[in-house]
Design a protein around this nucleic acid. Structure first.
Lengths: 212, 212
DNA sequence: TAGATTGTTAATCGATTAACAATC
DNA sequence: TAGATTGTTAATCGATTAACAATC
């Protein structure tokens, strides 16, 4: 049975776990072998109680009086998140945004690898990227299914985003990173996260100006 | 008195408002003159009760039996968010990520304009962007203050991000869009939003695989 | 008027925090 | 052992939802 329907771990807890991994990795890389939930909380900017509560959903990872072994807690959470493997990702849209994503250096050291790129006009977008051909949108569903891809990135204009999402989902995608400024309609087993810098800025202007 | 300390409007409500603006604008542009909270909720993927509750923090915008005038509700929320003006923005980091941000087409029709660009090595990054010179990080605080900039975008490596944030804040920045994968330490009057595609992907792998 | 839909209150739901016994 | 810190429960806090009187 798929974990989408795991009832008792709140999504908001899952969303914090990558932050723990990142922070623990930085600590371990700085040769900090142990942390208490208090120290970790300070580092991250949350409360120690929240960290302990979050971890308790998954097991016992610490030692009373001692705290957590940074490296092994990092590895434990990495496993929980299934980040101890490489995930092939499909990128739709190879305009300027798609190019920037494809060349984004952050993917290198991560668990994600762009394994297929699609564009409505594959001829017009110029060079393929390294070994990855740019394919037509029409191949999307079948190619995603062929490669067993479960993660898609949408970098097409808003007007085309829903159609692209549908094609990805038909191919088996269950996680979508959406750069288009539109709310995608998706079935309940598909998760979408938004990347929208303008939106993010718009949530902060409310607080600006006036006094200071 | 600054609205940072406005006690009674939850930040989570503020974060939803841009979504309402965007959706109302799309409806108005499609010549839909009126919407009920029910229709709007369907469009956005939230509940009608939530929309009515959110709006009630700011006033009365609808008519019983009729719903909301799309255009005027859009404008009302735009005003609440202070999006009816143009905000100059400072961009720190003009590497490949900074370039992509500076050229991002989404800024064009938005309320935001990149007004200053900074890099640690302004000589090495090549061409200035249009009319905007690339200045040294050392000018950041004074130039931000001179231009009255209140919004900053951080696109530098993680190791430099905190220092850059400090310089921005010293210059008067109160809103930061952070592309660096690090938790910034900031005073309580400064708001930070994260843009981190890898993090976003990492919050979804938990649900993948296994069944389907 | 009759029907529809708002604005608002109270009830529910869920997440965070505080506290502390267990124990390393 | 004494001190520190976990894991967990119960209390608190805050956000969402349901319901409905008001009214267009």
């Amino acid at each position: 049975m798929a974990r989408e329907f795991e009832p008792d771990i709140p999504d908001i807890v899952i969303r914090r776990l990558p932050l723990y991994v990142r922070t623990l990795r930085a600590l371990a890389d700085s040769d900090v072998a142990n942390v208490s939930s208090d120290d970790l909380a300070d580092e991250i900017g949350v409360t120690a109680a929240q960290i302990r509560r979050d971890l308790s959903y998954f097991g016992k990872f610490g030692k009373q009086g001692k705290g957590y072994d940074t490296r092994s807690l990092e590895q434990a959470i990495t496993q929980i998140l299934q980040l101890d493997r490489e995930w092939p990702v499909a990128l739709a849209g190879f305009g300027s945004l798609g190019h920037a994503i494809a060349h984004y250096r952050g993917f290198g050291p991560s668990s994600f690898r762009i394994a297929a790129i699609f564009d409505r006009n594959p001829d017009k977008v110029g060079e393929p990227l390294g070994e990855i051909a740019i394919l037509s949108d029409q191949c999307m569903t079948s190619e995603i299914r062929r490669l067993g891809i479960e993660i898609g990135i949408i970098a097409v204009p808003a007007a085309e985003a829903q159609e692209v999402a549908n094609a990805m989902i038909d191919g088996g995608v269950q996680s979508i990173l959406n750069y288009a400024p539109i709310v995608l309609k998706t079935p309940p087993n598909v998760r979408v996260r938004e990347i929208d810098p303008i939106w993010a800025l718009q949530t902060m202007t409310y607080y600006l100006g006036v006094g200071s």
